[in-house]
Amino acid sequence: MTNTDQQRRIDAYIRGKLDPKSAADFEEEYLQDAELLAELELAYALKQGLLDEEYQPEIGIRPAWWQKVRNSLLQPAGAFVATSAIVVSTLAFTVLYQSRSDLLMDQQGLTAFQPDVSIVTFSRLRSARENTDFSAIISPDQLTSGLAILEFEIDWPPKPVYQVKIAAQGQGQQLEPIVVSVKPDDRGYLVLAVPATYMKAGDYQILISTADNEVPKQEFSLRVNPTF
C-alpha cells in the first residue's frame, strides 16, 4: 500500500467514512503498528483542533457585531452615547458603594476563607493512589499514554470556575507554566489532564485561585517521584 493510499485510509477512518468491517480491520492494524497510530493521531489532532477552533474563536479576531459597535463608536454620536453611559455607571456605583458599604464589607470578609486543597491525586488509576502530602507518583503507563491526570479536591469555596497554574520549579526546568480555567466536577474535584511529558520527576508549584480573585490564591508544592 502506498503512502497516499494509507493517508486516504487514515482520513476516511477519521471522518467515519469506512464501513464497519474496514474500520475493524483498520483498528486491528493500528493496534499493532505504532507508526500508523502516530499518523492517525496527527490527522485526528488536526480534525479536533479544527473543531476546537470552530467553537473557541481566537482572541483578536473580532466578530461582525464588534466591528459594527467599533464603527459606531468612532462616529461623534456614538462616542457621546458611550461617554454618557460611562459617567452614569460611575455615578450609580458611587451611590451604591456609599449606601451599601456594609454589603461590600461582608463580601470582603469572605477573604478570610481559603480554598482547602485537601487531596491531590496524580495517577491514571485515580482511585488507587491518593497522596495527602502533595507528593505524586508518575507511573510508566502515564509516560506511554501521553496524559497525566491531576486532581485537586476543593472543599471551599464552591466557585463555578477556578484558575489553576502549574509551574515547574528549580534549575534545569525550562517548561512554560500551564495556566488553565477549570470547572469543578460533580464530586468537587478539579480535574486536569496535562501532557505526561510535562509532569516529569521534579518539583512543581501549583497555584489555585478563583477566577474573580475573590479569595486569596492557594499555593503549594507538588513533588513528582519518578517510579513506584
Binding site: L46, G49, L50, D52, V180, S181, V182, D185, A193, V194
Partner: peptide, 23 residues
Amino acid sequence: AEQASSYDSVVQQQRASAVRRVL
C-alpha cells in the same frame, strides 16, 4: 457539565493552539 468539562482543557488548548498556527 460534560459539554463544559475541562477535563482535557490543557491538551485541547495546546492542540487548538498548534492547529491555529497551522491554519
